[in-house]
Design a protein around this nucleic acid. Structure first.
Lengths: 145, 145
DNA sequence: TTGCGAGCATTAGACCTCTAACATAGATTC
DNA sequence: GAATCTATGTTAGAGGTCTAATGCTCGCAA
């Protein structure tokens, strides 16, 4: 009585790939002691020191309260610092600490290994196709809302 | 100083598509009052009445404690029932209630609308390609662990 | 100058997710 | 019959995610 079998639902396959991706990345990042969202934040922080939490949230594709949670955990571990902005007193500038940078580099090496293994499963043409198809899917779904 | 730009990371594109998918599905399911994981559980329960929580977890691609959380919320709303198995006393059989079936059908209609809109963005050949490429990605990533 | 709108930060509450650990019951094997 | 194996269920704890609501600061405009 189900109106559409799971195998025909493109969403099922996207979800499965995403689950495998998060699983592989989490396993790879475990030695560095960071989660996937923590790694994403550290990576952007290395590229944009002093960024605001809201802007960082946009880059990482999450909401500000979510980023707040992630940053709280990063700060507890001493991997980031937050200080008030010179002019805009309501803005907090966030930066990596020295230890945070080390952790980021360790995590990045592991994450890149996973990405390279994934990329190696495809030809250059297939990679382009996959990325193009995924981009079109994301656009259609965003427009759907 | 980053070793691999985000656009070249296939994972970035998979993640973005998955986020758009969950966003669109959550928006579509909101009128029915269910979340995406709740909908997935209700859908499988309609097809396999009396299934165990562990088996349901496998079908939905989550761990048993996660499914436990989802089922607890579904039970609080009166959409499922759980009763001890006749022989295996340690197993709880889970079934939809009448109201749960109605909610599932309402949610399913909305979810299928999203899937059809997504599928409409591709030709038959493109759909097959996308599914095949995603499947290969998932296999490679699972093997990576 | 006073107000208003935009952007940032935060809190509260609900939900999902995992790993780790433990308990239980049934089946298999020695 | 006893030990072991396998599958199920559950609890505990940490972390991530969202929406909704609140408060703050700044800049701009009436």
């Amino acid at each position: 009585m189900t109106s559409m079998p799971p195998e025909e639902r493109i969403g099922s396959h996207v979800k499965r790939a995403e689950q495998a991706l998060v699983g592989a990345k989490n396993a790879a990042l475990k030695p560095a002691g960071v989660t996937v969202p923590q790694y994403a934040a550290l990576l952007w922080l290395a590229e944009k020191p002093g960024i605001s939490a809201a802007a960082l949230a946009r880059l990482c594709g999450v909401t500000p309260p979510t980023m707040n949670t992630v940053l709280k955990n990063l700060q507890e571990r001493g991997w980031i610092e937050r200080s008030p902005h010179e002019w805009h007193r309501n803005v907090l500038e966030t930066r990596l600490t020295a230890e945070g940078r080390l952790v980021m580099e360790l995590a990045d090496a592991a994450a890149v290994r996973v990405e390279r293994a994934l990329a190696a499963a495809f030809s250059a043409e297939e990679r382009e196709q996959l990325i193009a198809l995924l981009g079109r899917a994301a656009d259609v779904l965003d427009a759907q809302r």
